[in-house]
Design a protein around this nucleic acid. Structure first.
Lengths: 348, 348
DNA sequence: CTGAAAGCGCTTACAG
DNA sequence: CTGAAAGCGCTTACAG
């Protein structure tokens, strides 16, 4: 049925060894022989069996990718970035989900042990820490795409969370706001700390202080954003701007302000983080700190493939910078450029 | 380094054959022997090499999935549905993208020929028709997840586009609207035809007619929605409701109406299609026809695995029904239930 | 420049 | 109940 290397060898009247040689572009093959073999390959449409090649060579030319879930609004961009470079290099992408908790991690560990792939991309390791040891011990090359900004034991790629927070503050101060509120992500996330630190530093440099009563902990859901606004409006001090640590939260902030009769950006300016598709469609459209998700995916994949090629592991996280995307939630339409959206790169 | 079946056999003082037998739970193994082998397996942490098993058995326990792109707002749900059932059955998921056009399709065809997976899930085959022949000829089991509603040559799963359109019309008529406008998807998409047909049928049954001047062709982008509204407002007849063929278009419709000073839902009611995450965050939140993306992914994966298990191919497309999700874009908040969102299954 | 043979790590008749 | 041997489809020393 399926044409094998043996069949090609037979038809070309050479040995399998020779076919293998032309397949892999080794030198030391007579030109005429090579041509003959290639003709047979073309005529039969022969493609080497990935499994057999893998077994013989000890590699699979496949990279695994473990993600906490596929329905997160920013996952698509990361995946696309990864897929682009992985495919360009002729590698396969084996995707796994960790959304059934321990069970899926165990299942996944089996795949690792079964040597189903050569290297691994990890997105935001949930509580996989224990399982990660197995990976490390097995010598599997790993790169983590770390939304949380922690510094893990593996090579990682992240974004400039701190600088992103700083850019949000600079922008808000630049539009004349002075009483800045923040709805953070979960406290124990590294990215929350970083975004808050960058934000606070800029505010301080401007000679202002961040009122602690205006810093509310959220959980990255829009509900937490809306709840934060209710709380602030009920019992907090006045504020004229809100920095939400992600766009979903910012959407909740917008909803909360609207229900309370505050207008955006006139009464309150709002800045989000991420720049998910939603951000352009909120009312008003959301100014946000763009997280370069696709580039992060690309960078991680490139780094992993480099390691597979023998490159050394970097000992510092790879940082892909954020950028500020200005929309109407922080400034009036009339003062904005014709497109209604402008984008400026973060310094450095 | 890596522990192999030979090593396990040696330690358990049996042949590789016997180890293989207990691995695969064959009968005819002495109980005591089996226990001994299992102990060695547990002690060594032995996991059979996926590649070797695949080569010997001729199957990979991996399914391929080819998608047009990963950044579409609804792709995550489909992927998650697929991943859930595929992983539960112990299969791997090899993901490929077709967003580099012919090049990626060729690369993909190689994977097919290389027998890198046992079966294939296809999302919305772009213009892969020609390449599909290769798949068919190779006897590879294929299931297509067909957003376009065409009836392809392969087993497929789709949604009830026609009934979805009908539900939109029923809902709009039920809220007292009579001059219904539509912004469709591209004309040559099967789903566009189906959604329009279902919509029109209900309108006719109600004794009304669909004014052809109120049917604008869009292209599933929010820009096309906004442009359609401009056109309608400029030169079209009056209307009090808009059915957009997807949520992105509906978001554009909302923006267009807002800019023109029309209020939603008071002046105009708006219904979308899909129920992507965005839909709950537009202003006002969008009533929409929910497409059961996750269930579609699950259904497709289940069907494919069934075929791998020898089940016959269904000759009719598998249909997962839409449902109506009512939010504020078609009715006043005050008349809505406390949640602000209600959902009703489509009849049948 | 070329080929026979061993090996990658399993499974599966076949024989006992 | 168990094992030796062949086979899956390649690659890679090794020898010529």
């Amino acid at each position: 049925m399926r044409v094998t290397i043996a069949e090609v060898a037979r038809r070309a009247r050479v040995s399998k060894t020779t076919v293998s040689r032309v397949l892999n572009n080794k030198a030391d093959v007579d030109a005429a022989t090579a041509i003959r073999v290639r003709e047979v390959i073309a005529a039969t449409g022969y493609i080497p069996s990935a499994g057999a090649v893998g077994l013989a060579r000890g590699v699979t030319r496949t990279v695994g990718m473990l993600v906490p879930g596929l329905t997160w609004p920013w996952m698509g961009e990361v995946l696309q970035g990864v897929a682009d470079v992985v495919e360009a290099k002729g590698y396969g992408l084996l995707l796994s989900t960790a959304n059934r908790g321990a069970e899926s991690l165990e299942e996944f560990s089996r795949q690792v042990s079964a040597k189903a792939f050569d290297g691994l991309l990890l997105v935001e390791p949930p509580d996989a820490v224990r399982h990660l040891r197995v990976l490390h011990d097995s010598g599997l090359p790993v790169v983590v795409i770390d939304d949380r900004g922690r510094r893990p034991a593996f090579p990682s790629v992240g974004t400039s969370n701190r600088e992103g927070g700083a850019a949000a503050a600079r922008h808000l101060l630049g539009t004349g706001r002075t009483r800045l509120a923040t709805v953070t992500g979960p406290r124990d996330f590294g990215c929350t700390t970083d975004r808050l630190t960058g934000f606070r530093d800029v505010v301080r440099e401007a000679g202002l202080t961040l009122d602690p009563r205006l810093i509310i902990e959220g959980d990255f859901t829009s509900e937490s954003g809306e709840a934060a606004i209710r709380q602030l409006l009920d019992s907090g001090p006045e504020f004229d701007a809100v920095f939400a640590h992600n766009d979903l939260t910012a959407a909740g902030v917008l909803a909360g302000l609207r229900k309370a009769g505050r207008t955006v950006p006139d009464d309150v300016a709002v800045v989000g983080f991420d720049d998910i598709p939603l951000a352009a469609h909120t009312q008003p459209p959301l100014t946000t700190i763009r997280q370069p998700l696709r580039e992060m995916g690309e960078t991680a994949a490139r780094q992993l493939l480099a390691q597979l090629g023998g490159a050394p592991r970097p000992d510092e996280p790879l940082i892909v910078p954020t950028s500020l995307v200005v929309r109407e939630s922080t400034q009036d339409t009339v003062s904005a450029p014709d497109s209604g959206t402008s984008r400026e790169e973060s310094p450095r």
